[in-house]
Nucleic acid binder design. Structure first.
Length: 574
DNA sequence: GCCGTTTTCGGCCCGACTGTTTTCAGTCG
């Protein structure tokens, strides 16, 4: 089995967990966790580095010892140190760390005092009330473990960004009405526009005696209050989403917002920079000795460490700090930069609105153009169009364009890429269109080689313009199909065609890291709603968030072009 | 275990809340 970066990272995480349970030096533990993170976020395959004999110690956080272990794992698939740890502690014990409230010390106590090694054994011990008898544990701790076990058993999955928004935004709006409250911002991974969020972090600034925390804990959608203090509270909503709220004074707003936006890796890196300048950075401000020198705004925090403002979507410690230092941060795309949408559906296939309704809704958004791209006949479940039906729609669009003012409908199709890489409609009709979007909707399970060849062949087609939802994944529902995305990106470059960033909340496909790769290769990305109704244009903001996480600027995105500039770009593949 | 304009030792990001304890360890973010 080939070893991937993620496999080595998992081994290092497990070593860290086990060392922690053994009460090893905390910094030694941190070194393993740090290395795991580095490997996960590394843009290249560490196995290839080993095979080429590259010096692994040049990677940050990897010294002689870890370099040796990486080499060992790549070559043997095992790590002798982990095997040794497994002889001292049962492998299943690290699962227990997933229970909120159980950290390394308590897991160690449970194992040594009660011989608890698995979730099932923990469950039994809770039921028999054996936990509360342990020194350092008590009745309440036992009850919390019982609750946590129940929640863990039901579901602890992450929430899609768009779903989290439906809970976070009304809650934030409600908090803004509390007396004394000045600002309420949803921070955390939500603000960084990650495609899924594990919890919601809400930052509040308020006057000293504002009742905001009491009101927060009285929100009527709360199922359980986990903790409740004057500046910090955690609750679980009835929908099982955890919400953490923090209140700080207005002068700490920027420092707190920076801190609670994360990511953790980014924050650590910024604090290190602060340390080099003998500054202490915490959620209350930036301090030189005891004096606050910054923190009212995020800009002031960055300025204190000698950097320009870094947009939240870039804060993953994936090179943004280096780019900021060099003054070459991207000027990220904004929703208002979009001039149109090139992937939408109407009642003619599986959409819910007429062409005219879609056109009017697009015009209201300030769009110049809207491409109508129904499914093709192969996708019978979506009432896909055959050549005759498509020809009829082409005529209808011509008639509508003669009437419409301030918006132009473009003629397109979302044509199925068949198993052999051919397209689901004949050339004569594809040739009459303004653009042809190719999409995979079947045979997801092909081998990497066959799936990649299939898509590469489709992109060879003279009329092919844009590859829809390139990875095919549905978040938390369907894995991406197995393809060599770098070859597809290079093919797009060679053929002069484009890749889509589909803004449907379930898709958000292309992934952020591939947006970055496409940008590096000079391939334009098209951010599309894939709207099936006039409401779906709202999803474009999630696509923009994903694009920003992929470092995309206005110039990297096809549909920021005016109609006049767009037309020749659509024709260049034909 | 890593790292170095404090460079081979002695540091390593920082603070809030809870429960069990009676001043603090453990956990979490």
């Amino acid at each position: 089995m080939p070893i991937h970066n993620a496999d080595i990272a998992a081994i290092f995480e497990e070593i860290a967990d086990l060392l922690e349970i053994e009460s090893a030096n905390v910094f030694r533990v941190r070194a393993y966790r740090n290395a795991a993170r580095i490997l996960q976020e590394l843009g290249k395959d560490v196995r290839a580095m080993v095979e080429k004999g590259e010096d692994l110690t040049r990677l940050p956080g990897i010294g002689d010892d870890l370099a040796h272990k990486i080499k060992e794992i790549v070559e043997t698939g095992h790590c002798a140190m982990l095997d040794k740890l497994h002889k001292q502690l049962p492998p299943t014990i690290t699962e227990l760390l997933a229970i909120p409230g159980l950290g390394p010390k308590r897991v160690s106590a449970l194992y040594h005092e009660l011989d608890i090694q698995t979730m099932e054994q923990l469950q039994r011990a809770v039921r028999d009330h054996r936990i509360q008898a342990l020194p350092g544990f008590g009745e309440k701790t036992e009850m919390r473990i019982a609750d946590a076990l129940a929640i863990h058993a039901s579901n602890t999955s992450r929430f899609k960004l768009a779903i989290a928004a439906q809970y976070a935004e009304p809650l934030a709006a409600w908090l803004r009405t509390v007396p004394g409250v000045q600002q309420v911002v949803v921070a955390g991974s939500y603000r960084r526009a990650r495609e899924t969020v594990g919890d919601i972090d809400i930052l509040i600034t308020a006057t000293e005696h504002s009742p905001v925390m009491v009101r927060f804990c009285g929100y009527d959608e709360i199922a359980e209050i986990l903790s409740h203090g004057p500046t910090r509270s955690s609750v679980i909503l009835k929908c099982k989403l955890q919400v953490d709220a923090r209140v700080v004074a207005p002068e700490s707003y920027g420092a707190a917002l920076h801190y609670f936006t994360g990511s953790k890796a980014h924050n650590i890196a910024i604090r290190r920079l602060g340390q080099e300048k003998r500054l202490k950075i915490n959620e209350y401000g930036v301090f030189k000795d005891q004096t606050r020198i910054a923190g009212e705004t995020e800009e002031s925090v960055y300025q204190a460490v000698g950097l320009p403002f870094i947009p939240p979507e870039l804060r993953e410690n994936r090179g943004e700090i280096e780019a900021a230092r060099k003054g070459c941060l991207p000027k990220l795309i904004e929703l208002s930069d979009l001039k149109g949408d090139l992937h939408t559906h109407s009642k003619a296939s599986d959409g819910h609105a007429t062409l005219k309704e879609m056109a009017q809704a697009a015009k209201q958004r300030g769009f110049e153009y809207l491409a109508v791209t129904e499914h093709s006949s192969r996708l019978t479940i979506a009432r896909g169009l055959d050549s005759v039906q498509l020809a009829k729609q082409i005529d209808e669009i011509d008639r509508l364009n003669a009437q419409l003012e301030g918006i132009t409908l473009l003629k397109g199709i979302e044509v199925d890429i068949l198993e052999d890489g051919s397209l689901d409609l004949p050339d004569w009709i594809l040739g009459k269109l303004d653009l042809v979007i190719g999409a995979v909707h079947s045979h997801f399970g092909l081998s990497r080689a066959r799936q990649t060849e299939r898509i590469l062949k489709a992109m060879e087609h003279p009329h092919f313009t844009l590859l829809a939802h390139p990875s095919g994944r549905l978040i938390a529902k369907r894995e991406p199909y197995d393809i060599d995305m770098m070859r597809i990106i290079r093919q797009a470059k060679a053929r002069g065609c484009y890749l889509e960033l589909n803004a449907t909340p379930d898709r958000l496909d292309l992934l952020d890291t591939y947006c970055q790769a496409a940008k590096a290769e000079g391939v334009l990305i098209c951010i599309d709603s894939d709207a099936h109704s006039v409401l779906d244009f709202d999803n474009l903001r999630f696509g923009i968030g994903q694009a920003r996480r992929g470092w995309l600027e206005k110039s990297d995105v096809l549909n920021t072009r005016s109609l006049k500039a767009l037309r020749p770009l659509l024709k260049q593949t034909m």
